[in-house]
Structures are given as C-alpha cells and as structure tokens.
C-alpha cells in the first residue's frame, strides 16, 4: 500500500537543522502533514495524544533516545503498528541489529540523500 500523502508524520530530532531537513525532504516527496518533537519523550506524548501514520526519528537524543522511544512505541498497544524510520549517524552493525530487534521499520545513516529517504519510505509502505 503506497504511503498516504495526507498521513500525519512525526519528525523526532534534537537538532533543529535536522528536523528542518527531514521535513523539507518529506514535503518535497509530497507529504504536508508534518509535526516535530525534540526527543523521544516529547514524541511519545504527541503520539499518544494524536493519530500519526509514520515516525521518522533520530537515534541520539537527550531525555529519551530514539531506540528507547521505539521500544516504548512497540510496547504500546495503540502505537505499536506505527512505522518507524530511524535516522542516525551510527553506522555500526550492532546499532542496526539493536534497532531491528527493537522493531524498527527501516534505517537511514546520516548523511543521506532525498532519494535514499524516498527509497526507504517506499519500502516501508510498499
């Protein structure tokens, strides 16, 4: 099933520049219903308060790391089916394995291109 361009997407990153970049790419890919959060904790609060179709999250963040947020999402009955794309500077195999075990939908290593992001989204929503 292709991604719904009207679905609400939550972009989670502690760096304002990265949130802006990811939102810009998503906008160029045709998604316009975009929200943002600065860390995993804030993201969880937003996810529980509203209905989101997709989460794009950084790994390294203060307050709550992306991987911990992912585990919390997968442990929550209401949120567990939301696709989560992890964006991170950590390219180690151990990180990838940890994310896969935690239930990540896909994984992008920084720096990445818009094409890579599109490719990953297409794989998630195919």
């Amino acid at each position: 099933m292709p991604a719904d361009p009207n679905m609400k997407i939550l972009v989670v990153d502690d760096m304002s520049t990265m949130r802006r970049i990811v939102k810009n790419i998503l906008k160029q890919l045709g998604f316009n219903n975009l929200e943002e959060a600065e860390n995993g904790q804030e993201a969880l609060t937003k996810l529980k308060a509203d209905s989101y179709g997709f989460v794009v999250s950084d790994w390294n963040m203060p307050v709550m790391m992306g991987i911990d947020m992912l585990r919390a999402i997968r442990a929550d009955e209401k949120l567990k089916k939301i696709p989560v794309l992890m964006v991170t500077a950590e390219a180690q195999k151990e990180n990838l394995m940890e994310a896969v075990q935690a239930g990540v939908s896909n994984y992008v290593v920084k720096p990445f291109t818009a094409e890579t992001m599109q490719e990953k989204i297409n794989k998630i929503f195919k």
Partner: peptide, 16 residues
Amino acid sequence: LLDIMTALSFQDLVAQ
C-alpha cells in the same frame, strides 16, 4: 535545491 538542503546535514554531524 533539495541536494543543498540535505548537504546541510553536515551541521548535525558537526554538532554531534
């Protein structure tokens, strides 16, 4: 323009 935008992700790596 989109390439310029994504190239600016260098700032995130610098900040880290």
